[in-house]
Design a protein around this nucleic acid. Structure first.
Lengths: 345, 345
DNA sequence: TGGGCGCGTGGGAGCGCTCCCAGTTGTGAT
DNA sequence: ATCACAACTGGGAGCGCTCCCACGCGCCCA
């Protein structure tokens, strides 16, 4: 019976076998057509494609996955906390990019939010058992071992951002140093003479990059960075507020501030208002991220834009390449950032 | 050979068969333990569980899906446009809720962004071939046939929001009418006498609900709604700006505005500033959505909050219930909204 | 004219599970 | 002790696909 079975699938949908019968060929041939094997004559291919169209055949994912030992799915792993903080445009931008790149591959996107170490553990197990073909990691912290773990287990991984300058795991990052330079050069170009900065937490590589860019831009303009003009924040609005007050106490004459995040720029703006300083009249302000908050500030905030969607796409392309030929090339991309000029500078 | 095969899986991971061998039982019994069947003695269950732990066994999803004819995955379908507009907190809030509810079910979340009719078509096909167990639909437009299509095909569906007051497809909505009432009552309670509103597009049910709430609150306070005090917008900032100007031209004496979205409130705020009216001194403002923009306005915007995460959770629970017992109950939940009071009113 | 050779092709053997039907055991009633 | 019955348990038969081996055929070279 099994040998000559030609019935529909359980759910009333046609199976490979049916398509084969209709096209007057064997199962193997249909499979070859579907998977684009070149070892099929043009005549046969056409006949099979016709049968597929007639029957409205759609391959059964699970059966395919089981037989071929792959899942045709990749996971996007996001620490839960990030969905709050960077909700927009970071999170949705990445997703849009990934999704766009996946659109014509019939690979599925599995979204995994991780909120506890337990869930983290569980996900590793998942990935380990080849339930996904590859993993996209987003906003990985400096001390996170997961990327290395996955990589060691032979699971294709691509991260967004890196944990250090000598990151070994394949990743796609944006040019944080360059973005910061752009911002500072712009401020200098507008005739500002005393440019301060409010930084992110120093244990985050991305934050260090932005400080580096700040310093480099100053040096390139022939001025030595002054530690008094560098105040530490943690990317939050409150920290930006506090840092701005500290800065004004230390250097009341400053006339420009580069903030490593839009949120901190908002805090800084508030502090300046409290001190009766106008923006951009007394002090020019530049942020980082180009969030919607920046657009809606008053005056609107000049900000460094990261190509979030582009990063999502690039990550996906890199991952697919890794899954595909598993070549030894470990992609490390750095995408350019861009300065969006608005009223605050 | 096949009968007594006891080897590892292809990827070096243990299979059901191995677990059975180790526990000294048959495959069927292990399967029963894994699937929580009650028809297993306590002794046997313990032995099997021990074997599972020893081997670090994880069931193979694809094999399971194939044999059991289910996928253990649900899809969250989002029109691409929405990820831009409502990026925050709408999109990420829903996702967080869904993900939280799924956390201990080992059902996977498949994220599908739809940008073209072609992709829409493709997704329907997917769903039709039982590649997912159920579908979560987000921000469905009034004329979208997809919910009905899916429902007719026997695919469990739950929508967020509804297309009309007599929506037949199972859905979870928030109390838009009630939220609007809350807002207007609050304004009235603060002694405002002439309360206007800026509405969303009238072809969206959600927008009509908010107008209804506005009118009802006025009537409850013994005043007849005045069409001059109702200006139409489309949820965008620009439309809010235009509507506010129109309103002030028609009724210069108004002293409060309920905006059907935060974005429109921002536009309205700008218009008021242009006209030299203070907020909340001259005109009190209330928005809808409680986005981060509201928190960062100056003064911060009073706004109606929708329980996004709660809606995500409720949708997921409803969908799982539908998948589970496929009972004839078509859940229609309406979650309460809440007024977040800030400086603008 | 015969023996390769390779392209196309058919279909058996599985992938790792679940389902279900027997079979085996233990229990209580007769 | 005997039988009926329930509670458990084992394992065959697939799920729909891919992989790969073997086979048939036409072609080229000797």
């Amino acid at each position: 019976m099994a040998v000559t079975r030609r019935g529909m699938g359980r759910d009333g949908r046609p199976t490979l076998e049916q398509v084969a019968a209709r096209a007057g060929v064997g199962r193997g041939t249909v499979s070859r057509v579907i998977n684009g094997s070149p070892r099929v004559s043009e005549r046969t291919r056409a006949a099979v494609q016709q049968a597929i169209a007639d029957l409205g055949y759609v391959p059964h994912r699970a059966a395919r996955a089981l037989a071929a030992n792959r899942s045709d799915a990749i996971a996007l792993v996001v620490p839960e906390a990030e969905t709050r903080l960077f909700a927009e445009p970071y999170f949705s931008g990445i997703i849009r990019g990934v999704s766009a790149e996946l659109a014509d591959t019939d690979i599925q996107l599995l979204l995994t939010l991780i909120r506890t170490p337990k869930e983290r553990q569980r996900f590793s197990q998942y990935a380990a058992s080849h339930r996904v073909d590859g993993v996209l990691l987003v906003s990985v912290h400096g001390d996170d071992p997961m990327p290395d773990q996955l990589a060691e287990m032979g699971i294709p991984v691509v991260m967004n951002g890196r944990r250090s300058s000598d990151e070994l795991v394949p990743h796609v990052d944006c040019d944080n140093v360059g973005g910061a330079q752009l911002a500072v050069e712009h401020l200098l170009g507008r005739g500002r003479s005393t440019v301060a900065t409010i930084t992110g937490p120093s244990d985050m590589y991305v934050a260090r990059c932005r400080v580096d860019g700040y310093k480099e831009a100053l040096r390139a303009a022939g001025r030595e960075p002054d530690e008094d003009l560098i105040a530490k924040g943690d990317f939050s609005e409150e920290s930006g507020h506090a840092a701005m007050h500290k800065l004004m106490r230390r250097r009341p004459e400053l006339d420009a501030v580069f903030c490593a995040s839009d949120l901190m720029a908002i805090g800084a703006r508030r502090a300046l208002r409290e001190l009766g300083r106008s923006v951009p009249g007394d002090v020019a302000l530049v942020g980082f991220d180009d969030s919607s908050l920046a657009r809606h500030m008053d005056p609107a905030l000049t900000s460094v834009r990261q190509p979030m969607e582009g990063m999502g796409r690039a990550m996906t392309r890199a991952l697919l390449a890794e899954i595909g030929d598993s070549g030894p090339d470990r992609p490390r991309l750095v995408l350019p950032t861009e300065l969006v000029r608005r009223g605050s500078s």
